[in-house]
Design a binder for these strands. Structure first.
Lengths: 248, 248
DNA sequence: CGGGACATTGAACAGTTTCAAAGCGCGTGG
DNA sequence: CCACGCGCTTTGAAACTGTTCAATGTCCCG
């Protein structure tokens, strides 16, 4: 099967090394409705001065950088990844509009964040975040809940990597993406990331991703109008493939 | 490489279905030293009435069970796993003496816990745990830190599953186990779990685990005095194999 | 219209799985 | 106390999925 004999065959990230040093902002937290999710809660702190933009393939922060801010993605898609000395890459996660990143992991970033597309982010100073957690029990509960959810999703991904074959992995990925973007109904799914990104996320190669997509297309499970769009023609078939990895 | 074509070939868990319903206990939390880790902190609550024992291969709780307690492992080793309808098994994690399990994930267990060896656990009622988190900021900090550490380790495991081949996975596993049990110095490592457990943890088959162990033995990296013991003869070689998956 | 990055397809190769059988250790019972 | 039996581990050989290498195709942007 598929372990990676990962040669060094990676896109030469057209990266610009964009260190980012936003100035800390001390806005006062307005009362948040108790029903709001953590990202919603945070977005109430909105302060135009803390917004930044990144171009496609730009590096937002590096693994090991001091984690002075919590980032809220306003638009676009970000990949959190890890690069090894011998050229392998592991994409731990894709972070999309509405999501947070950098909430956990202490004082240093545990991943490199790169813009998959053009990206807009809002920066929340960690100090402010910590202060809110200190004072506001409801906020704390949200943080905890957010963290648990996140943990669950990482564990689910471990399952995918540990137990599924190529087609199953792709199906799990597609379904999860569809759920996150709300595309499950319309059946139309935007793929912000390229095949290589998907491959590195699923522990496969680009070629295998292509072949798996082609296979699903031939089985009338998917339509592929273009490289960055999928139409889900048979969600049940996808769910069957994804198996336990789809919450359905 | 290695996806799992996981047929249904599993040990027929000699399991006894041991539901566990411990009575809630309301001990008062004694002040904990600020330096204590979360497990240490919890162990100060020790109450003999909340201790339970489980025999090898017994089920401690099932995925989906209500999570009324947080478990602290006193002795033995536990595997947290997930069983799929078609007979695949994913061992998410091994939990060992001193570790906690069931801290996160909300009101329902997200994994099945099975005793790898005979196991002694202490049960901490979740309500009590929550109360402490409510009142004690230092305790909260420990929970947070514990959770972050745990998240990191799951992400590291994702990397192992996504990017490494059989020998590398085994090396990563052995090194991590050695660190956790403090066997890095002595070089002598107790393997509480069987080959099948390791295989299901690393997304490989038993046979592949055996062959990888044999290979490392032939390369003088390991000695294998018996099935449940390893001697680390060349930690550097192991670290090289584990690559980025070893912290140092 | 041309160029380059990305996607797709093909063919050969390789690591892991699968199937099968033998080896070993350990507890139980004679 | 020894022998048998059962479960787990180990080894071998063949099959198979995914990788690697290579070439072609496609789309977008300048």
């Amino acid at each position: 099967m598929s372990v990676s004999f990962h040669a060094v065959r990676r896109q030469p990230a057209t990266g610009h090394s964009t260190a980012f040093h936003a100035t800390a902002v001390h806005s006062v937290a307005p009362p948040a409705p108790v029903t709001a999710s953590l990202p919603e809660h945070l977005s109430l702190l909105r302060d135009p001065g803390t917004i930044q933009r990144f171009a496609r393939n730009e590096t937002i922060f590096h693994e090991g950088d001091p984690a002075r801010h919590i980032l809220q993605i306003l638009s676009g898609t970000v990949r959190l990844c890890r690069h090894t000395p011998d050229g392998r890459r592991h994409v731990a996660e894709f972070v999309m509009a509405g999501d947070l990143c950098g909430v956990f992991g202490g004082t240093a970033q545990s991943f490199t964040a790169e813009a998959v597309t053009g990206v807009g982010v809002m920066l929340h100073p960690r100090a402010q975040f910590d202060r809110m957690a200190e004072c506001d029990p409801a906020f704390r509960a949200k943080v905890l809940s957010h963290l648990s959810t996140h943990l669950l999703s990482v564990q689910m991904h471990s399952f995918v990597l540990g137990c599924q074959n190529a087609k199953e992995r792709l199906a799990s990925f597609i379904l999860r993406l569809a759920e996150r973007t709300g595309a499950t109904r319309s059946g139309r799914l935007e793929l912000a990331m390229g095949r290589q990104d998907i491959a590195d996320h699923l522990g496969l190669t680009v070629e295998t991703i292509c072949r798996a997509i082609t296979a699903l297309r031939n089985e009338r499970v998917l339509d592929v109008p273009n490289t960055h769009q999928l139409v889900l023609r048979n969600v049940d078939a996808l769910s069957d493939l994804a198996g336990a990895a789809s919450l359905n």
